[in-house]
């Protein structure tokens, strides 16, 4: 049995430990992320899945410190190891300290990025702006050449796209352009929030293929949120399941898919007959997610859990190792972790 959640023989690119994030709302503080721990190795790709409102967007926005104004980091630490091998404390970094990291080290592609580009300027100015923000001496021709090459890598006509206005590009083209822009400064971590939602099936497939080949070519670390288990299976090394702000399971994809440990994960996997169906549509566990403003007694999943025990309504189970490289937060598993399923 390991003493920590994961083996740490290899140095982590990103280490989030015991992170809690609260939103100030009219009704009181909303616990959007509770005690989350997430480690990402260089070149590793991690998928985050879970119902809407489970805190996925909040968690990944915190990494680049781009949370809404009413959010605060309540507890925990976030550390990032830069290309120059220095450790940055993301949780305490100021806006000024974050700026050089953004897009240079960590790229965050937000959801619904259909209007990610300034509508009044051509695409190339937005590539140039990005390059200049990090290197004021960047030469226009160098940036243009590199941008063109990257756009061709995502199967676009580089020259044409660079001289287009955003509204001249289709949704899928914009998304691919944004991915190309994401690679401009050769980041080591790319975070994507539902990168294929709102795109048609064909475009989704294309984007997926592009992301895969880019990852193999550039070996950046990746954290992405999706509702599509098909994407998880083709892109993720590891999967993290969130429920009501907590990470309830963290496992390598193959093992997770064969044998989900947490009752919520089991519900997810069983509800999805094929890898191509979205989680949201088929989610069939009865009951609803708890109100995050109220302090939750015990396990947040307890009210919906088919295996609920007495302890579940009293104590919230911590995320603990359940097998080599796997962890889950469930009292059943803690009681007897030798059994593979509860």
């Amino acid at each position: 049995m390991m003493s920590t959640v994961y083996g740490t023989d290899q140095e982590n690119l990103l280490e989030i430990r015991n992170l809690s994030i609260r939103y100030r709302t009219r009704r009181g503080e909303l616990r959007a992320v509770e005690d989350a721990t997430l480690l990402v190795k260089p070149g590793e790709s991690v998928a985050i899945i879970g119902e809407s409102g489970s805190g996925k967007t909040t968690l990944i926005s915190a990494i680049v410190r781009m949370l809404p104004l009413n959010a605060r980091l309540a507890t925990g630490t976030m550390r990032y190891r830069t290309a120059a091998d220095s450790l940055v404390h993301l949780d305490t970094a100021t806006e000024r300290e974050m700026r050089p990291l953004r897009w240079k080290e960590i790229v965050m592609v937000f959801q619904a990025s259909q209007s990610s580009f300034n509508p009044v300027s051509r695409i190339y100015t937005q590539f140039l702006d990005t390059a200049r923000a990090h290197n004021p001496a960047a030469r226009t021709s160098d940036v243009m050449d590199r941008s063109r090459k990257l756009l061709e890598l995502v199967a676009l006509d580089g020259e044409k796209v660079l001289h287009s206005f955003p509204h001249e590009l289709s949704g899928g083209m914009k998304q691919r352009t944004l991915i190309a822009l994401g690679l401009l400064l050769e980041p080591r971590l790319i975070i994507l929030d539902e990168p294929t939602t709102a795109l048609d099936l064909l475009t989704q497939k294309k984007i997926l293929k592009i992301l895969r080949s880019l990852r193999d070519q550039y070996r950046f670390g990746m954290v992405f949120v999706t509702h599509d288990l098909g994407i998880v299976s083709r892109l993720a090394d590891r999967v993290v399941v969130m429920y009501a702000g907590s990470i309830v399971e963290d496992a390598p994809w193959e093992e997770f898919y064969q044998d989900p440990k947490h009752p919520y994960s089991q519900g997810l996997i069983r509800a999805v007959p094929k890898l191509t169906t979205a989680i949201e549509k088929l989610y069939s566990i009865p009951g609803t997610t708890p109100d995050l403003v109220e302090k939750i007694q015990g396990c947040p999943f307890a009210p919906r859990c088919p295996f609920r025990m007495e302890i579940c309504t009293r104590e919230n189970p911590p995320l603990l190792p359940v097998a080599l490289g796997r962890s889950a937060a469930c009292h059943l598993l803690k009681e007897d972790s030798s059994e593979s399923t509860p």
């Binding site: 680049v64 781009m66 700026r99 050089p100 990291l101 953004r102 897009w103 240079k104 790229v107 965050m108 937000f110 619904a112 990025s113 259909q114 209007s115 990610s116 580009f117 300034n118 509508p119 009044v120 300027s121 702006d129 990005t130 923000a133 990090h134 944004l178 822009l181």
Partner: peptide, 23 residues
């Protein structure tokens, strides 16, 4: 979104205010 993404790209606030929001 474009203002948020501009910030995520590490652009300075003055630049964002001028070229992205102001215009």
């Amino acid at each position: 979104d474009y203002a948020t993404i501009a910030r995520a790209r590490g652009l300075r606030p003055e630049k964002i205010l001028r070229s992205y929001i102001g215009r």
